[in-house]
Nucleic acid binder design. Structure first.
Lengths: 138, 138
DNA sequence: CTAAGTGCAAAATGTTTGCATACTT
DNA sequence: AAGTATGCAAACATTTTGCACTTAG
């Protein structure tokens, strides 16, 4: 088994995510660290994120092609998951226990253990499905 | 509103998906058409897929970064959605009406209209969560 | 000392775009 | 004719990789 060394760079990436508490793209993290004067190379940010995801401290969320993955520190945020609107592209984070029912169903009927953090629910958000006021097509 | 012309290329792409009935990456479609002797350029395949998705004949499914989007003809396959294993990477298509409950919940509690075709449930599949025989972690 | 991690720049991947040409209607 | 679509190659954006060097244990 491979042991992981503690490095300044990885600590910096993790503490950024911990302090923020929100979802961030790799690019955002890179820029933020740069502005803070922290020197962490782009490649290292990606590699650190990969390790942090493997270790379970951080979750990745792949929204859709052409957009970046979103990373987020998960210290107990077990009910958190994402609703992504296919019309406006916005992603809403929902903290809601319905995911428990989902987990139960998929485990019992499909032998499948749902990941609360990485699951993406696609659909149309309330803003975009507002009746009448919609723009006349695209 | 913009009218769409019927073209040989788009018909070819659509009929490939109809005949297959399965999910395919753009790359697969391009290769398959090439082998069939159909001449459709890569760019046109992408553009056709985009139009077909817009028209509702085809669904896209973005699995995760570094992998291609999956396209699929949806002629009434309304109960179809994807379970993706984060360990082995396999994607299982599930046809199951539980999605009705999901739809109800997200609509009632979040004003969000779930897309049956594009939603991705991430988790660990039964093969990968088989007890006892698992590798000793990482 | 050795395994693991870093930084850089270059590569890779999957998809999109500009533009001149060719279809559809 | 006017509006779309095509094909090609070049551009893109995000992420990954090779390699020589540094650091943690």
């Amino acid at each position: 088994m491979q042991t992981t060394y503690r490095t300044r760079q990885r600590a910096v990436v993790l503490s950024f995510l911990i302090n923020s508490g929100n979802c961030h793209t790799a690019e955002e993290i890179i820029k933020a660290l740069e502005e803070k004067g922290e020197t962490v190379s782009k490649a290292t940010v990606y590699r650190s994120l990969e390790l942090l995801v493997k270790s379970g401290d951080v979750s990745v969320f792949y929204s859709s092609r052409g957009e970046s993955a979103l990373y987020r520190y998960i210290g107990g945020h077990s009910d958190h998951f994402h609703l992504k609107c296919t019309q406006c592209g916005k992603t809403v984070c929902a903290d809601c226990s319905f995911i428990n029912s989902m987990q139960k169903h998929f485990y019992e009927h499909h032998g499948f253990n749902v990941s609360r953090q990485r699951t993406v629910i696609y659909g149309v958000c309330s803003d975009c499905s507002a009746p009448a006021i919609q723009p006349l097509s695209h």
